[in-house]
């Protein structure tokens, strides 16, 4: 399945990503390839296989309750499109 340019832009918008024209073309190619690979997978008969979200046979992966240093506040806020003092600032979303 080949994606259209509009579909790529739509996905980018949902992911809040701004793309250049070159990136749109590059991603259109890559995403289309991924989807085609899934088309191959969809040919497998899964009638008697229970659905799973896990591709590998791992279970019970847990860690002990220990604290490790967090990132410095300056790094946490470094990519904020908008900040105010020690906080991220966003538009009001009130229901």
């Amino acid at each position: 399945m080949r994606l259209t340019r509009e579909e790529v832009l739509h996905i980018a918008r949902l992911a809040r990503l701004g793309l250049t024209e070159a990136e749109v073309e590059k991603l259109r190619e890559q995403l289309s390839n991924i989807l085609e690979n899934f088309e191959v997978l969809q040919q497998v008969d899964t009638t008697d296989v229970p659905p799973t979200a896990q591709a590998i046979d791992l279970q019970n992966v847990m860690r002990s309750d220990e604290v490790a240093p967090s990132l410095p506040q300056s790094q946490i806020l470094a990519n904020a499109p908008r900040r105010e003092g020690e906080y991220f600032r966003v538009r009001a979303v009130l229901e």
Binding site: D65, E66, V67, A68, L71, I76, L77
Partner: peptide, 24 residues
């Protein structure tokens, strides 16, 4: 708990300056 649910940041959020117990 001492640490958060899915990372090792301290879960003691109430006594920390804003955005200091944060990791990726």
């Amino acid at each position: 708990t001492r640490s958060k649910m899915f990372c090792r940041c301290s879960a003691d959020y109430a006594n920390a300056p804003p955005n200091t117990h944060v990791c990726p």
